[in-house]
């Protein structure tokens, strides 16, 4: 079993290599989870040590993407935490109606279920045509899946309950084309979607958003970084724009949170003041 002090040094070295060689900054990711991920990667690649990742990282073209995709966790599902979507419908949609055109940003969209969920809600409210939806992540595998919009039929079936809890008026299945055990979201949902790689730690603001969803990403960061990222969102928002966080994330302990009011404590929905 690995000595924790050694593991700490090894993790520091890998983080340094990622940062110095690729500008990928994991220095302020929560360490306990990061160490678990690195150890998992080492096991998966049948390596001996965490530091065995370094030569490959430095000398093997393309390995950095595999590594990032291995570190960045992208567990998600359609209409995850439906109370978030219900709160957006209640608080944000009335404001969206006042815009002829608006932008929404899913930061850390993972494999995209959240993005299609949002598009479905917008469609049902007659707002989808006015929306420009940006979906970003650092994980290129996840982004590719998000772009494809193909999920297992079981995942869609499991999403039905959440969809209803979010206030859906039809069936999730109405929005997908079933094909051989998998389900592909309808093209009409994705007309206004743009998927691209974006790192919330180091990349900049890229548009004026009315709503930013960044759910279950901040928990992977230390407080300082959470603070900086919330500040990034603040700078990317239109006047009185909204931010939705994950069910276990909050702005309560963040200095940058003072730029926001909490609209729904349970749903973790915030609005710039």
């Amino acid at each position: 079993m690995i000595d924790p002090d050694v593991l700490k040094i090894e993790t520091d070295l890998v983080v340094t290599a990622l940062h110095q060689r690729y500008g990928l900054d994991f220095r302020q990711y929560s360490r306990a989870s990061l160490e678990r991920r690195l150890q998992g990667l080492v096991e998966k690649l049948a390596l001996d040590h965490v530091t065995d990742l370094i030569p490959r990282l430095l000398h093997e073209p393309g390995f950095v993407d595999r590594m990032v995709n291995g570190i960045a966790v992208n567990v998600t599902e359609p209409f995850r935490d439906p109370e978030c979507f219900a709160a957006i419908r209640e608080h944000v949609f009335p404001v969206l109606r006042t815009y002829p055109y608006f932008k929404i940003w899913h930061a850390g969209c993972a494999s995209g279920e959240e993005v299609y969920s949002m598009a479905i809600m917008l469609r049902e409210a007659g707002l989808l045509d006015r929306a420009q939806i940006y979906a970003t992540d650092i994980n290129t595998d996840a982004l590719a899946r998000a772009r494809d919009g193909i999920y297992t039929s079981e995942a869609i079936a499991r999403g039905e309950k959440n969809y209803l809890a979010a206030g859906g008026t039809g069936q999730l299945a109405d929005y997908v084309l079933q094909q051989y055990g998998s389900a592909r979201f309808a093209n009409s949902l994705r007309d206004n979607m743009v998927f691209s790689q974006h790192n919330v730690v180091s990349d900049e603001v890229f548009g004026e958003m009315v709503l930013v969803l960044c759910r279950n990403v901040l928990i992977y960061f230390e407080r300082d970084l959470q603070n900086r990222v919330v500040d990034l969102f603040h700078r990317s928002l239109a006047h009185r724009g909204f931010v939705a966080l994950g069910a276990k994330e909050s702005m309560t302990h963040l200095a940058s949170g003072s730029d926001f009011e909490c609209l729904d404590r349970h749903a973790r929905l915030y609005r710039a003041v």
């Binding site: 929560s30 360490r31 306990a32 567990v75 279950n216």
Partner: peptide
Amino acid sequence: LLERDRRLSLSSD
């Protein structure tokens, strides 16, 4: 999870 500085953190792994 517990961090080395003995704070708690959550993960969605």
